[in-house]
Design a protein around this nucleic acid. Sequence first.
RNA 1: GCUCCCUUCGUCUAGCGGUCAGGACGUCGCCCUCUCACGGCGAAAACAGGAGUUCGAUUCUCCUAGGGAGCGCCA
Length: 474
Amino acid sequence: MTRPVVTRFAPSPTGFLHIGGARTALFNWLYAKKLGGKMLLRIEDTDRERSTQAAIDAILDGLKWLELDWDGDVVYQFSNAARHREVVEQMLERGTAYRCYASAEELTQMREAARAEGRTRFYNGLWRDRDPSEAPAGVKPTIRLKAPLTGETVIEDQVQGRVVWQNDNLDDLVLLRSDGTPTYMLAVVVDDHDMGVTHVIRGDDHLINAARQKQIYDALGWEIPVMAHIPLIHGPDGSKLSKRHGALGVDAYRSMGYLPVALRNYLVRLGWGHGDQEIFSTDEMIAAFDLPAIGRSAARFDFAKLENLNGHYIRHSNDQTLLDSLENLLRYIPNGAQIAAKIDDNKRAQLLRAMPGLKERAKTLLELIDGASFILAERPLTIEPKARALLTPETRQLIGRLHGALQAVEAWSGESTEAAMRGFAETNGLKLGAVAQPLRVALTGRTTSPGIFDVLAVLGREECLARLADQTSE
RNA sequence: GCUCCCUUCGUCUAGCGGUCAGGACGUCGCCCUCUCACGGCGAAAACAGGAGUUCGAUUCUCCUAGGGAGCGCCA
């Protein structure tokens, strides 16, 4: 008796896939996966002026990067325009819709009058029951829904609960524009119905639209899908996350070095919780996800938490996978090409070997790349200012003696170099830190790096001795 | 202005009439330590305000304040 669940993600292609859209897509995807159903993808391109192919590409690219796959072919709403008109014809015949010849001026007057009188509904029913013979010549009408005048419209929302509107606050909305193209409100209803959508999960900026669409469903005699309106995401300062106010496309998060798993985990916990659990594998997420558990208040976007999660996933990633992700990212960052040019199989082997120490210290792939720069660097190393301060005549002299001690090591490894360094420190009455820091500066050009014996091992005997020699004199 | 939604530590949240109001991120200490991280331990930190209902409200109801969404021949 229960139909298989069908959800859909329905972005309008007027811009990139922003973070709120990504979360909506994730929720739809999770719910479909949880119930063994399908998630469909529909591009709402009925606004021919603002829809662009570039935006469609960006949305598809964003979804793929996030690994949120959809079922079947992408549906382009505009291609269903004929069907939308057909449905409106039926409504006209049945008397649930009517032609409206009101001019733009008349409409403006109605709007102003409504606002002045403190009414929400503005259309005054001018053409609602008027005889078509009165139609002005040469004016192409819009088709409006003959919405109920009294009573109430109720939505049993999975997230928001029972929401009730008095029908006298709802308008006779336009179904078909005067040029014969369908409006969003009509197209959504017809497409969701035709596509067999059982659950509509979308941003709560559509909550009122649910009421309007319910009236269309009623007029058509169709059953309304289960509704779930999820709260919006706000900026760190609590303001609306608009495109001109810090909203970034998901491609921006990719460029900042975030992992898709981390972003998904962060996003799912925004507005939704499952006890005290913070980390969710994809399977756990699917199993635990549920609509009624979604909170009703807007959440602020917090980069610090995203970073923490990203660091967690980096640390727990497989070394080879991480290296692949890192190399892949190079295509999306400014100086990526130069870095990519330096990576050959030899460097790959070194990066892989250093990865356990590197990933422990990186919260983003960008930091991982930065941390790996000592491997990619060429002699003579450029020494960072902070590191340069450690290069005094005394430490340079010490580096020279370190060079000598290390030169004696034949079987080069982390262990053998560590033994040599500890021995050196002990015989000279020095703490290990006193020799490790100058060594680090000479080897990496920085004051921070993975464990110094790992650095020694990764770089190899020849390179290490050469870098030490570079800093010995002068 | 009108309609609808929201309000627990700085942030994300747990809580579904009786809890010392829990966890996580962040912050601040301490430990570990060759640096930085990681990890471990600990601390500070919240029920927007006011009326009710109740033996008892963070939890239920109403009001106020604040925030958000919508009020298109945009989606």
